[in-house]
Amino acid sequence: MKNTLSDNDLQRQLRADDKKALESVYLSYKQAFLNYAKRYDIATSDVLDIYQDAIIAMHQNFVTSQLELQNSTIKTYLFGIGKNKIFKTLKAQQRVIRVDAENDNYTEIKIEEELPTANQHALAKRLSELSETCKTVLQLFYYRNLTIEEIVDATHYKDANTVRSHKSRCLKHLKTLFKVH
């Protein structure tokens, strides 16, 4: 990679939901992934789509589970997820996976992918109707899993109680929006 950050530094930034770091990871490994995927004979536009989905799945795992890679690098982890997604695409197209293509440097990594329920999809849509401040506080709590104290540090709220009461009001508002639709 061209930038001077170590893999560990980048991982730390990804855990903190740093979008600039994510974009830099995206650009750094894109061409390598497109080249890697050539052995599977999938249309470039589909590979790009798979790559984007793999990057997003990887990033969300860093953010929500506060992932720390012990014996692996971001690239190996990302390509492992991508490989799994390629195989899923090939299987969906009922195509045979060549054995020699299975044995390369990357181990398939399957990220927990329970399909979201209809309820969760509906809830996701309602999120866009929240005010920015509500969305932010709920996102910090439910998506980034920051503790109330960490939210105080990361925002302008004066103390933990203010965060708690604001969060609870926003949640109530979201539930009302959800019921209306």
Binding site: K19, L22, E23, Y26, Q52, D53, I55, I56, H59, Q60, T64, P116, T117, N119, Q120, H121, L123, A124, R126, L127, S128, L138, Q139, Y142, Y143, N145, L171
Partner: peptide
């Protein structure tokens, strides 16, 4: 449910960001 809803919304946002990029 809340966590997954945010994941869905955020994934959609990121996808469109990459497509624009």
């Amino acid at each position: 449910d809340m966590a997954v809803a945010f994941k869905i919304a955020e994934a959609k946002h990121l996808k469109s960001h990459f497509q624009q990029l």
